[in-house]
């Protein structure tokens, strides 16, 4: 149930991101719905589920890119670290998901830059930070709240159901 809904969320995010989000791209940059989903789940459910969802979300992002593996790895690391570092935060405070997504997006794209772009010989980090990373950080943070709200709601429904199950058995 829980993992089925995670898969549905990731696939919906992927489809939206590869098609419709092209229309709302600002300055050539579109928000990364899968990354927001991964960070939200990691926030709500901790580092292990964050890493698992991050792994599969990254794998989805890798499917139609030149090679497989880099997004998978970075997604997993990001999910794990967000889950680990936000233990004990108030998940109901809207400032928490927004800042987590803001910093998580930077972390994600920085790792991507180091592992993929820098090794090709593009050493000008400032250019990439200004044209891609910073814009995506801001855009992601702006669209976080509605997505986080939906995931929070789904998560609470599932938790209630699981709670009943635990009582029964």
């Amino acid at each position: 149930m829980r993992y089925l809904s995670y898969a549905a969320m990731l696939i919906v995010g992927y489809v939206l991101q590869s098609t419709l989000l092209e229309l709302i791209a600002i300055l050539d940059i579109k928000p990364n719905l899968i990354l927001i989903t991964v960070i939200s789940i990691a926030l709500l459910r901790g580092e292990v589920e964050g890493a698992v969802v991050g792994f599969f979300g990254g794998l989805l992002m890798d499917t139609f890119s030149p090679f497989i593996g880099i997004n998978t790895f970075i997604g997993m690391i990001t999910g794990y670290l967000v889950g680990l570092l936000t233990k004990g935060f108030y998940k109901e405070n809207p400032f928490v998901p927004v800042s987590a997504v803001f910093i998580g997006t930077f972390f994600y794209n920085f790792l991507f830059y180091v592992l993929s772009i820098l090794l090709k010989g593009y050493t000008d980090f400032g250019y990439f930070f200004n044209t891609i990373i910073l814009r995506e950080m801001v855009y992601n943070a702006l669209v976080t709240l509605p997505i986080y709200g939906i995931i929070y709601f789904i998560n609470s429904v599932i938790e209630v159901k699981e709670h009943f199950k635990r009582k029964l058995f």
Partner: peptide
Amino acid sequence: IAKDTGNWY
């Protein structure tokens, strides 16, 4: 029908 999901490629 679809574009790359990331902003890099």
